[in-house]
Amino acid sequence: MLKTANQKAWYFVVPVVVLVAFNALIPLMTVVNYSVQETFGDNVFFWEGVKWFEEVLNSDRFHDSFLRQLAFTGMILVIEVPLGIGVALSMPRKGPWVSVCLVLMALPLLIPWNVVGAMWNIFALPDIGLLGRSINALGIDYNFTQQPESAWMTTVLMDVWHWTSLVVLLAYAGLCSIPDAYYQAAKIDGASAWSVFWRIQLPKLKRVLTIAILLRFMDSFMIYTEPFVLTGGGPGNTTTFLSIDLVKIALGQFDLGPAAAMSLIYFLVVLLVCWVFYTLMMRHEGQ
């Protein structure tokens, strides 16, 4: 085997190793540390093994917030992805309106998360908010601070408003990269608009949509700030998603062990779902 004469190249890797250690590895190991031990303060730890994991996995509270989280993520994916593709398809491909549309689409993405939460909170207030008052004026009894259905509808609507743009922008970029020749060829074949969508546009969008779905899955699965500001997890526990629950356990009740175990389970679920999804989507890709 050839021996490398100069080993100095390793020095170039050092900054990255240090950075990764500080922003990922060390925090993660702290969490692992808490998840397998019990502490009563004073930096005294007792070994507990997998006790916290068992406790979390068997608790109804975790099951409930996990199901709530799945329902929320499922709903926003079912709404945002088709809606995003639809909006992208109807955006102009050339001309002065392109930039106008793109800027309008990018706007919601530029607003900080807690501002979005605060905006929708006020917007949806049943007595003074434009949305809340309008719905009530239509004769529908709507109060997101008291009714679980109203709270869910408002949270989903807020997420759709905030994040559909991301799907739109990705899908639009994908559509723009399809050469004009495909459309001409389809036209010459006499293909309908419907088959152009199914046979050309959707297959060609597969890659960007995979990315869009992954990003939307991860972000919505970890959502915290917006529902926290909007509903604070209520009424009751009806909009307490995983992150909100986690913070309640860790900082509200100061149960560091169960909170650490829950964090790791949470992290592994996100990782696993992303991996399975990506593998399935890419299985039939050629080279």
């Binding site: 050469p179 020749a181 495909y182 001409q184 060829a185 010459i188 046979r199 050309i200 297959p203 060609k204």
Partner: peptide, 12 residues
Amino acid sequence: AMVYQAFVNYPN
């Protein structure tokens, strides 16, 4: 019928 510089076929 038309054939282009880019290889145009239905991808799936």
